[in-house]
């Protein structure tokens, strides 16, 4: 089965954001960690009637988001998630941010504590193009998805899909859904892990606590 995700809105929204938005039930409470200026928050608020809130590190992103009427806090995923009580959200979302956190494991644990579900998307460092870049060019990969040189990038904790799955196992997170996307935005076939890990450019996981 192949799921094709199309950007029907035609607004240039990032494909993983559309996918995440589709995974969120209407009328729920959502925290988007690393929300930028709030593109996903706005989608969730306007189209799904969610109580959508965000945390964003960049002052600029926060200002622009709050000026558009969104509830965004200038803060840091690594330190600020600890302040939220257990189960205060239905979903805690971390899109394209986990690789930029100082302590991805702690962040993920807090997400699973604060939210009933965690949705995580990240660039897969196991993708064949990245592997071949490293193998044949011998330098840190620079791609359309990951355009920064190693000394400029905020991404300090890259991982592969396989690595991420291992982390989920280690902290006792249950994977409810997992989707890999290739460059065309197509979700990969139902295929074994090694296939995803090689051909998925991005991955999106829906997680919950065990038990």
């Amino acid at each position: 089965m192949t799921v094709v995700i199309q950007n029907t809105a035609g607004n240039g929204a990032r494909i993983d954001l559309l996918l995440i938005a589709a995974m969120v039930e209407p009328n729920t409470r959502v925290l988007d960690v690393g929300c930028g200026e709030g593109l996903l928050l706005e989608m969730l608020r306007d189209e799904k009637n969610c109580d959508a809130r965000g945390i964003e590190l960049s002052r600029d992103g926060v200002s622009r988001g709050v000026a558009r009427g969104l509830a965004i806090i200038q803060g840091d995923a690594d330190t600020d998630l600890a302040d939220y009580p257990d189960d205060s959200f239905d979903y805690v979302i971390l899109s394209q941010t986990i690789q930029a956190t100082r302590n991805p494991r702690k962040v993920l644990e807090h997400m699973l504590r604060v939210g009933r579900r965690a949705i995580v998307s990240f660039p897969n460092f196991g993708h064949w193009r990245i592997r071949s870049h490293l193998m044949f060019k011998g330098g840190m990969p620079v791609t359309d998805n990951l355009p920064d040189a190693w000394y400029d990038t905020p991404n300090i904790h890259f991982c592969t899909i396989r690595d991420f799955v291992a982390l989920c196992d280690e902290i006792g997170a249950v994977m409810e859904r997992s989707v890999a996307l290739n460059a065309g935005g197509k979700a990969a076939l139902r295929a074994p892990w090694w296939f995803w890990n090689l051909f998925g450019e991005q991955a999106v996981f829906v997680l919950r606590r065990k038990g």
Binding site: R53, R59, V62, S63, V66, A71, I72, I73, Q74, P85
Partner: peptide, 18 residues
């Protein structure tokens, strides 16, 4: 203040202006 509001699960925005 923001931390306390988060802990109380209140809806909060926080902007630090340069």
């Amino acid at each position: 203040i923001v931390h306390a509001l988060n802990a109380a699960a209140a809806s909060v925005s926080f902007v630090e202006i340069e």
